[in-house]
Design a binder for these strands. Structure first.
Length: 257
DNA sequence: ATGGTCGTCTCACGA
């Protein structure tokens, strides 16, 4: 089984690229973030024609998450329990033996912003949710745009980014609290090198200059980690015409149909 | 040089 996650920064704009990418990379499931679509505008038919069922939780202009799957999707839940938030950032579902949680973690804007306070509060609530989901689902993958670079290997210029949003200690500690529940950053199961990025700012030709961050992650439970054969980032679509600022991340599991 | 570029409900804001 192969799964992927991609912050598309508007599915309306990026739908042709998603369809092109799926033709080349026919993953079993694809989690999308920043769809920026109301549910009534979600391109259900185009994706069905491409062989994918879809579940989605969207809103106008901002946020929005979706999961596409070649096999049926069940047990769908949106949002964080006990947190009545209009921002659509969380979508959990079951696909065969896999429990998948798709996240668009708040960006936080800057460490002195009230959005940063919201981000850390949101991550604390997420911890409790993931703890409950892990207790119920041994084969759990938590994927998405975490808006946190786990460590300095994941940052093109750690000195410039030190203490900044996406790299600050409180954010990294909040991510570590999630990992301490029994989750593993799947890319690090197979790769210890730095310089592997999933996001490049649109400005200053950051992609061409290889100035990126790795903030899009596939976290896996212990049982899933033993089955994980591969975890990588496909930077190709970032080089396409009119790209998303994020690249898709992919993980493959054996003995998981 | 405190900018730069995207996408959106576009002359403002979020990323």
């Amino acid at each position: 089984m192969q799964i992927a996650s991609w912050n598309v920064n508007s599915l309306k704009v990026r739908l042709p690229q998603v369809l092109d990418w799926l033709r080349e990379n026919p993953v079993d499931a694809l989690a999308l973030q920043e769809t920026k679509l109301k549910d009534e505008n979600f391109p259900v038919e185009a994706l069905r024609d491409a062989g994918y069922a879809a579940v989605f939780a969207g809103q106008s202009a901002y946020n929005g998450v979706a999961v596409l799957s070649r096999s049926p999707i069940t047990a769908v839940r949106t949002g964080l329990p006990g947190f009545d938030d209009p921002q659509q950032r969380v979508l959990a579902c079951t696909i065969g033996p896999l429990r998948l949680i798709n996240l668009y973690v708040p960006n936080g804007q800057s460490v002195d912003s009230d959005k940063y306070v919201y981000k850390l509060d949101w991550l604390a609530r997420l911890r409790d949710y993931l703890q409950a989901e892990l207790a119920e689902h041994p084969h759990l993958a938590v994927v998405g745009d975490f808006n946190i670079a786990p460590d300095d290997r994941d940052v093109h210029d750690p000195a410039a980014w030190a203490g900044q949003v996406l790299c600050s200690e409180p954010e990294r500690k909040a991510l570590q609290v999630l990992l301490d529940l029994g989750l593993t950053d799947s890319l690090r199961l197979h790769e210890s090198a730095g310089g592997i990025y999933s996001w490049w700012d649109y400005r200053m030709m950051a992609f061409r200059r290889k100035r990126g961050l790795r903030i899009d992650l596939v976290l896996v439970s212990a049982a899933l980690a033993t089955l994980c054969e591969e975890s990588r980032i496909d930077a190709t679509p970032r080089g396409w015409e009119r790209p998303s600022d994020h690249a898709p991340v992919i993980a493959r599991f054996r003995n998981l149909s």
